[in-house]
Design a protein around this nucleic acid. Sequence first.
DNA 1: AATGAATGAGCGTTCATTCAT
DNA 2: AATGAATGAACGCTCATTCAT
Lengths: 204, 204, 204, 204
Amino acid sequence: MSTAEEIHPGAPRRGGGREAITAAARESFAERGYHGTSIRDIARRAGLSLSALYYWHPSKQHLLAALMEEITHDYFGRCDRALRGIGDDPAERLSALVRVTVEYRVSRRVESNIAALEWRNLEPANRERLAGLRRAATRLWADIIDDGVARGVFGCPHPDDARRAVVAACNAIVQWYEPGGGITPAELAERYTGIALRIVDHRG
Amino acid sequence: MSTAEEIHPGAPRRGGGREAITAAARESFAERGYHGTSIRDIARRAGLSLSALYYWHPSKQHLLAALMEEITHDYFGRCDRALRGIGDDPAERLSALVRVTVEYRVSRRVESNIAALEWRNLEPANRERLAGLRRAATRLWADIIDDGVARGVFGCPHPDDARRAVVAACNAIVQWYEPGGGITPAELAERYTGIALRIVDHRG
Amino acid sequence: MSTAEEIHPGAPRRGGGREAITAAARESFAERGYHGTSIRDIARRAGLSLSALYYWHPSKQHLLAALMEEITHDYFGRCDRALRGIGDDPAERLSALVRVTVEYRVSRRVESNIAALEWRNLEPANRERLAGLRRAATRLWADIIDDGVARGVFGCPHPDDARRAVVAACNAIVQWYEPGGGITPAELAERYTGIALRIVDHRG
Amino acid sequence: MSTAEEIHPGAPRRGGGREAITAAARESFAERGYHGTSIRDIARRAGLSLSALYYWHPSKQHLLAALMEEITHDYFGRCDRALRGIGDDPAERLSALVRVTVEYRVSRRVESNIAALEWRNLEPANRERLAGLRRAATRLWADIIDDGVARGVFGCPHPDDARRAVVAACNAIVQWYEPGGGITPAELAERYTGIALRIVDHRG
DNA sequence: AATGAATGAGCGTTCATTCAT
DNA sequence: AATGAATGAACGCTCATTCAT
């Protein structure tokens, strides 16, 4: 979130130091990557001293891990909630998941970038801790598609590949989407549900 | 595994400093990213001194740029050649492109990783120099899909999104594919041409 | 000898990192020249780590520039003050300038060496910033000599050459003078005012 | 001497490698100083490979020492020859020495710069070897002035200071003289003999 | 008479981190 | 709740020099 910066760019952020630092880290990691970002960059961006950063976070790696955890939980929570209000029709469930994902990629570009690219920069211990959640997210997709196939609603011969293709397509949005570029998130979600349903070979 | 090692496995690298360095850089960049790789890592991996690296390459950035250029040209050349031997049926042309891409992602994992992730670490001048080739590659896909749509062979309502989805699906392979994991490249290519044709809504 | 040491001779430098570093840089640059001095030399001499140096100064070049600026201002200020308390007799004014300069060369040997030799190692931007002050110092001498010639008090046919000769003679003192070598600064100043007055062909 | 470079700047020099290298070293040392010059700079300027440089000279320091030796001998030889053809009148002898020196500073600017600035970059052994010649040159001046004073032709009260002033004035010429700047070397020599004679307080 | 390939030490600089306050 | 001052390790890179040819 960079609202503060859009109003007073470069100005020290209002509000707590903790928030300012995570926000600055989010943006920096997204823009230049973990190793391309120095903690001085982050502190500068947060309008705080280097030491303030260490008051709130024990290390740069911890900052990344916290960020990744937050992002993953946030995304997974949204998926979960979106599916809860929906019946058991596989096409509808898949569409809901696509919609949530597209919306997330579009409205949380910074977070999407980090989630996509910084996984390999997590130290093993931190990566492990998140791996379970990642697998759960995968299962969310897999369960729906497998169910659709089992019921004969989806005709794709290789559900795992279909799932990967759907997810990859949604995830790639962050690489090219420009906010305010003429196409609304809702419209985009619509298009991608179409693509997803074709990938799984949905028989309407 | 470096090319040198593929030729004389286990033998100490003698001469061929330039190749040894490029190979080492390729592997290191792929594994840990540009900023996560130090030139000392590269030199060590190449079995050469730090200074030997600078005898052959003027800078770390130049090394990345040369690598990216080589990779991009190589991939684009394969695409080009694959299309040249094929008629003008959009489905066949699209399948050919998918096959080439899947095969490349599977057989050139290191290069695919670099091409996918290190674009943003190119200095503007180097990025610019490659941007044209990138656009040309995009056009390869776009022309085929647009043609298919124009002929009524492809029914997808949004050709650009279809293209992006197909490419994203193919590119993502490098993230999960494990060589020797039971599924052959040919079989994988087969599956992905299927996915691609569904994405563009091919009417057989 | 650093200023810090002049205040607490022999005491370990505590705090005052900035001063310790500037002092160390002054001495090292004077002894071995800008390019002959490494910042590790400076840090070692200051009794601080390499990084402490960068905490106080953004670069080696900046260190030189700051030093040069300080030295030039200091010397010019002394000249200015010396002339302010003196009437308009050219011989007296010239003598005052010679005295100040001789004294400076003798008592600030380190600074005199830097000012004399490191000009060419300033980056153009830094050199430019100091060029004005240099020209002003030159004008101090030129105005006096020109005035003396105009009034007929100085008979030298080429005032510019006379000025350069006087200044060169004074500046060269740093090359041979050894403090405690039997001749007092006051006596030396006396001798050099004599030389200067002969150079401008003063008609007593 | 940079005639070759003035004709084909940057082009490899004609003639023997040894000469090309010393010429390149002369110019580089004069422009940027010993420590500011790399042997790669020299080789590049000479249009030769790094290794060619080492074929002719065992080290960078040796190159400097050889250069200094050559320069010092050349200058001293000129002084010697100039005095040989002249009677024993102190004023005439002093004038001859000034003329030779002025001319040397004007026509051998590169060499004069090196002689003036690089003394401290000679390793002790090399410095020692040249110290004798330096002292001899000093004696040339001193003998004349002392003789003039003894004969009552020169009235300066401090012959050593007078000598240093004369030499300093002549040496400083290289710092400001621009060839083709309107004033001929001969005219300049004329002016500086005047200054020198006033410094020693010559009684015409 | 010269070169191409390589090296180890050192360069100026930046890194993540710590500590006393 | 935060800072200013400092550190040791590492960074990308250049240095003078060597060696086989």
